[in-house]
Design a protein around this nucleic acid. Structure first.
Lengths: 142, 142
DNA sequence: CTCCGTGCAAATGGTTTGCATCTTA
DNA sequence: TAAGATGCAAACCATTTGCACGGAG
């Protein structure tokens, strides 16, 4: 399924199909968090110990800038990656930095109305809501 | 005007009023772009050559994390600062990185309805639209 | 067989930090 | 005059890059 999409995107852009690119793609697809390059690399080397961190960085840049199959969300100075293509927004906890997705037809509708109203032609968008996550709000403040 | 707000915020947080903090605040207020730390420092040293870049960084962190009077927008790995407190969204040019503000009562109303609808309690939000700016769209592609 | 992609290590560069000095309250 | 802020330079660390080797087409 997904791998075929990757393969056709690679061909379309004159890029080669390599095991490293497939592993990065699959690991991102399977990830439940929004990993940064380091976390993604850690996950990958559990099964493929030979893939270097630099390669992961290079592949993520390829996926983001040329193939446009991932988006990055920066928190502090670290890029976190998201391979979900469906329209959604992110909540970010200002305390622990956890990123969550929110999918909602209402948000999508809101957004479509908005860009029409403003006559915008966005290539992409990032909508981040800073909101203390449930785990952090349970912790007592000192 | 604005400086009184800064002064009361500083007192409120037990921080001292220093010439450097005032200059950073005023320069941000007067800036028409969304400067990063380096650009802000360059602007500042035109009139106050003794302020160091490290101090500008420290003050920006103070303003963002403790006083909450500025917001940062990251493009690539660089933080750009925005002191406007009124609700607005940003467009970012994927080619040149230029950031523009969009103010709109309709957007504000949409947004307020949306967060009520979703029962969210945002402390803050960042809404970024990636869209080629007019200057870049005029340039011929090779 | 030719290049593109990878792995490694070194470089980069925006940001942070340690410390001595200066300033605010 | 004591705690906090600044300036300088060095350190940090996420990311990028140069280069030799290896693998895809």
């Amino acid at each position: 399924m997904g791998i075929d999409i990757l393969k056709s995107k690679l061909k379309e852009h004159g890029k080669r199909i390599t095991p490293q690119r497939i592993v990065v793609y699959n690991t991102l697809k399977e990830s439940t968090i929004h990993p940064n390059a380091e976390e993604l690399h850690q996950e990958i080397i559990k099964k493929h110990p030979n893939i270097s961190l630099a390669t992961v960085y290079q592949i993520l840049n390829l996926f983001e800038d040329e193939l446009r199959i991932v988006k990055s969300i920066s928190t502090n100075h670290i890029k976190h990656y998201d391979i979900r293509s469906e329209f959604h927004i992110h909540t970010i906890c200002p305390k622990c930095g956890e990123i969550e997705d929110i999918y909602s037809d209402k948000i999508k509708l809101f957004w479509e109305n908005l860009i029409e109203e403003l006559r915008l032609k966005p290539e992409d968008q990032i909508i981040k809501i800073y909101q203390v996550c449930s785990a952090c709000s349970k912790k007592k403040e000192i």
